[in-house]
């Protein structure tokens, strides 16, 4: 993607500023096209060609089980601080903490559990996938795959895609549980809200659950594909692997935040 300014003979301030806007836009467009192309190829191979289920299980272990401690730590602390802050405020303004647990559960399902989990998966798993695939690219293992007539997307991306999708949903459910229990602990110890009062599902609707599942599925599709794309587009030596991992975590996090915005807006208009 060469900058358009290089082709014009007169590079005045006008064309320079246009090039400054258009260059990044073209780059983003090309990147998005590549990512969607990879997504469609992945879906094609998933449904048309045999899937390596053994690799799926291995990747599921790598993505799911080995992220458990990380997700527990992060979501536990998040649940504690969210309840601490909101209970502190509610005590001063309303003075009534009856609905604290119900509102917290609703907010967890709608927003925090799937999104923060997906950001953590983007951080841990996204960089992991990009580093692994990127190292395979720069050590020419992917070329060796191609030489043996094994498509890297079918061989490498499809198992990670399936495992990532399943594990994102599973970890999101797990995140709700961890975060809620951590919040319950803080509410019980510091604000004298008993767990029976705190555990209140009356505000939870089907719309919340649908929004939760939509988000988890969307993130589960986006993160493995984007990070595998970053890994496969690595070039050069160790510098290329580093660049690919950085690109994976940045693109995945941006995609998660953007999808969160889209799906929250959608859910707000149609579901709640």
């Amino acid at each position: 993607m060469s900058a358009p300014a290089a082709q014009t003979p007169s590079s005045g301030p006008m064309s320079r500023s246009l090039a400054a806007v258009g260059g990044p836009l073209l780059m983003i467009g090309g990147e998005l096209r590549d990512i969607f192309r990879m997504l469609f190829l992945t879906l094609y191979y998933l449904f048309r060609k045999p899937v390596r289920w053994r690799a799926v299980v291995e990747q599921g272990y790598e993505i799911g089980n080995r992220s458990l401690v990380f997700v527990t730590l992060v979501l536990g602390f998040l649940g504690m601080i969210l309840i601490y802050q909101s209970a502190y405020q509610a005590q001063q303004i309303v003075g009534d903490l009856q609905l604290l647990g119900a509102l917290f559960l609703q907010l967890l399902f709608r927003e925090f559990a799937p999104t923060i989990t997906a950001l953590m998966i983007a951080t841990r798993v996204g960089t992991g996938i990009a580093a692994e695939v990127g190292s395979m690219v720069v050590t020419e293992q992917v070329d060796a795959l191609r030489m043996n007539n094994a498509d890297p997307i079918q061989y490498l991306v499809v198992p990670r895609f399936v495992a990532g999708l399943v594990m994102t949903v599973v970890l999101s459910v797990f995140a709700v549980v961890v975060c809620f229990l951590a919040g319950m602990f803080v509410a019980d110890r510091l604000f004298d809200v008993s767990p029976t009062t705190f555990f209140n599902t009356t505000l939870l609707t089907w719309g919340d659950l649908i929004a939760f599942l939509m988000k988890a599925f969307a993130y589960g599709i986006a993160v493995p594909v984007i990070s595998a794309h970053a890994g496969l587009s690595a070039f050069g030596g160790s510098e290329g692997v580093g660049a690919a991992t950085t690109k994976a975590v940045v693109n995945c996090s941006l995609a998660v935040v953007f999808l969160d915005f889209l799906l929250s807006g959608f859910a707000f208009v149609f579901l709640f």
Partner: peptide, 18 residues
């Protein structure tokens, strides 16, 4: 080597997030 760079980036972002 190159694998180590990928691993280092992975640990770095994980520890930063925690």
């Amino acid at each position: 080597g190159a694998v180590g760079v990928g691993r280092a980036v992975n640990s770095s972002v994980v520890f930063s997030a925690v």
